Simulated scan of single mutants.
Amino acid sequence: MKVRRLLAVLMATLLAGCGTASPAAPGTASAARSAPTGAYPVGVRTFTLDPTGARPLPVTVWYPAAPGGVARGRFPVVVFSHGLDSLPGLHAPLTTRWAAAGFVVAAPAYPHTRRGAARFSRADVRNQPADGWRLIRHLVLLGARRGDPFAGHLDTARFAAAGHSAGGFTTSGMLTSGHPPRLRAGIVIAGGGLAGAFAGPSAPVLFVHGDADPVVPVTVGRAAYARTPGPAAFLTVTAGDHGAYLTPGRPGFPEVLAATTDFLRWTLYGDPTTLHRLPPAAPSPHTTWLSRLPTP
């Protein structure tokens, strides 16, 4: 009964509202290595997964680019999930910077929670983790498909899931018992856990939450952090609301960008030097840090 009541509270909180240099040399994908240190130009590709199916999924992909296509090398992949009444493009200030740092970022527009959905349904969040896994399987196929622009450029053994608000709950829902080990990490921004989350192969999770969030209270994120059995960290944005800190120029954005990027570098590239930067060496008036990550 207590478990059911807790889940009901979490879902009710979630459904209340959401929304919104010079190129570095790429490395190989098979082993831990140094992450790129420069910035790539960023390319954009769009496609619709299962366009005639029951749940068509428009997808926006940002990727490290070079003249004529994708930059040389194989890049880890981040699946980014938007919040209620939102769209992938509204998160471009963050996702394009991840792509510039050496990640392919694939962002689906979910069929019943995206802005402009014909049949909007907040309750459909519970179906979105399966959509995320459907996208991962499709990207694995693209990475091996002769003639596809992404062929040979996706490190399909190294995925992370990330998301904001409802997308944060979607992310936690992808980290359930039985998930393939190719999902190496999660980033939950202004979200929390779904039933059965944070099980299966151990994957580090980074939580980002404003301590003045009026939509998903910070206590929901902290409860999810407490439930994670493996390495985890919690970045609190002081006086942060439901996501203004994801906007360049707003308090907390530089710290959130630095922490999430270094977390991805550590978990997906296996670059041990980036773990030394978690938390950032310089204290910030805009954020505080709680960690159960390994000691460098």
Rank of each mutant, 00 (worst) to 15 (best):
A92L: 01
G73Y: 06
P231W: 04
A233T: 04
Y63I: 01
L290I: 00
R115F: 14
L135K: 09
P231R: 04
A144L: 08
T287V: 09
A233D: 05
R4N: 09
P64K: 05
R222K: 12
P56Q: 14
P181Q: 06
P23S: 02
F169C: 05
G68P: 03
V78S: 03
L57H: 15
S34L: 13
S22G: 11
T48W: 01
L14A: 09
W62R: 08
A190C: 12
G270S: 05
A24V: 03
M174T: 04
T170S: 11
P214H: 04
P296E: 07
P180L: 14
R5M: 13
A259N: 07
V59E: 11
L87F: 05
W62M: 00
P56E: 15
L154I: 08
W133A: 13
T60P: 09
A162P: 00
F159N: 04
G143I: 01
H209R: 00
V256C: 06
P56R: 12
H286L: 03
A244E: 15
G243C: 13
A100W: 02
P279S: 10
P254D: 13
G27T: 12
I136D: 05
A66P: 02
A197N: 07
P181Y: 05
A109N: 12
A239I: 07
D271M: 10
G168T: 10
Y110M: 13
T171S: 11
G221R: 12
G89H: 01
I136V: 14
I136P: 05
N127K: 08
A162Q: 01
A100E: 02
V9S: 13
R134H: 01
R250I: 01
A232G: 11
G173H: 09
G186V: 10
P285N: 02
V42F: 03
A25K: 06
M174P: 01
A161H: 08
L15G: 02
S34T: 15
M1H: 07
L194M: 15
G17T: 07
T37A: 14
G83C: 00
S81A: 12
C18Y: 06
T295Q: 09
P283I: 01
S121M: 11
R137K: 10
G168R: 03
R265G: 05
P248V: 03
T261G: 03
F207P: 00
L84F: 11
V215Y: 09
Y63A: 05
A259G: 02
A185G: 10
F207C: 00
R119H: 12
V61D: 12
G143M: 02
R134W: 05
A35V: 15
G200K: 13
P279G: 12
A223L: 14
V208D: 09
F150H: 04
K2T: 11
G167C: 00
G102A: 10
T260S: 14
P283G: 08
S284W: 13
G191T: 10
G221Y: 08
P214R: 02
R126I: 15
A65T: 09
G252Q: 04
V256H: 10
D148N: 06
W133I: 12
A12M: 07
G193C: 06
D148H: 14
F169H: 07
A195E: 13
T20A: 11
D262M: 01
V218T: 14
V208W: 03
A161G: 07
A35T: 15
G243L: 13
T28H: 10
T236Y: 09
G147E: 02
T287I: 00
P279E: 07
G252Y: 03
L84S: 11
P204Q: 01
A282W: 06
A282N: 12
T176D: 08
M1T: 13
